[in-house]
């Protein structure tokens, strides 16, 4: 599903380049659930942004997602792959606060080009929030907000789900509920998931755990 070779990413820090990813190699099979752990600032979020085509690598030998070579893609091509193949779940949920739970999901579906039909309803039902469909994020608990964010990500049936510390802002009960949802989508739909987490309990739910340190990815088990 994901093949990355020698991914490097630097940011400008004043008049010098600050390397964040120093040649990351990664192979993730379709239907795999992978957790990435590592200390703060080691480059986990940057890796996720590169894999999610949110930012291009500074240098790389290869980056394929669901069979598509993404290195040669321009802005439009990256946007298309992101829209058609990738779903995101963020630590801070990132729901659009002016839209209801249902409208948040419907917007993602519309961006994908198709009418929302019953997919938004199904996604809300899947995360157990059908009753909250008309509530705006400000009127949802943080656990509910994250479940809506997951519903939004999976409603589009992405090939790859990228989750950046999805339980980072949740209490243990909500974190457990989120991980249960991930497992369910992974097992029932064969969804490929890459999840960044600081929580070892959450990481334990993954099929495979990777460690990141100083911009290098290394297997943990």
């Amino acid at each position: 599903m994901v093949t990355a070779r020698s991914i490097c990413k630097s940011y400008r820090d004043g008049d010098r380049d600050a390397p964040v990813l120093r040649g990351v190699d990664l192979d993730i099979r379709a239907g795999e659930f992978v957790a990435v752990m590592g200390p703060s600032g080691c480059g986990k979020t940057t890796l996720l942004n590169v894999l999610g085509l949110m930012t291009p690598p500074t240098a790389a030998e290869g980056l394929r997602i669901d069979g598509v070579d993404c290195l040669g893609l321009g802005e439009q091509g990256r946007t298309r792959i992101r829209r058609d193949k990738i779903g995101f779940v963020f630590q801070r949920f990132n729901l659009l606060r002016t839209l209801s739970a249902r409208a948040n999901i419907e917007l993602a579906l519309r961006l994908r080009g198709g009418p929302p039909d019953g997919q938004a309803t199904q996604a809300l039902r899947d995360v157990g929030l059908l009753d909250c469909a008309h509530r705006k994020p400000g009127h949802l608990s943080i656990g509910e907000q994250q479940r809506v964010a997951i519903a939004r990500a999976v409603a589009c049936r992405p090939a790859l789900l990228l989750a950046d510390e999805p339980t980072g802002n949740l209490d243990s009960a909500n974190a457990e509920a989120v991980i249960r949802l991930f497992r369910r989508f992974h097992e029932s739909n064969g969804l490929t998931i890459i999840m960044i987490t600081h929580d070892a309990d959450c990481a334990a739910a993954a099929d495979r755990l990777l460690h990141m340190k100083d911009g290098i990815l290394e297997p943990a088990r």
Binding site: M54, E75, T79, R82, N94, L96, A108
Partner: peptide
């Protein structure tokens, strides 16, 4: 700004 980032993550084009 953050919302625009969210839109782009959902696949919104620059034109959108």
């Amino acid at each position: 700004t953050r919302e625009i980032g969210v839109l782009r993550s959902l696949g919104a084009t620059r034109r959108y």
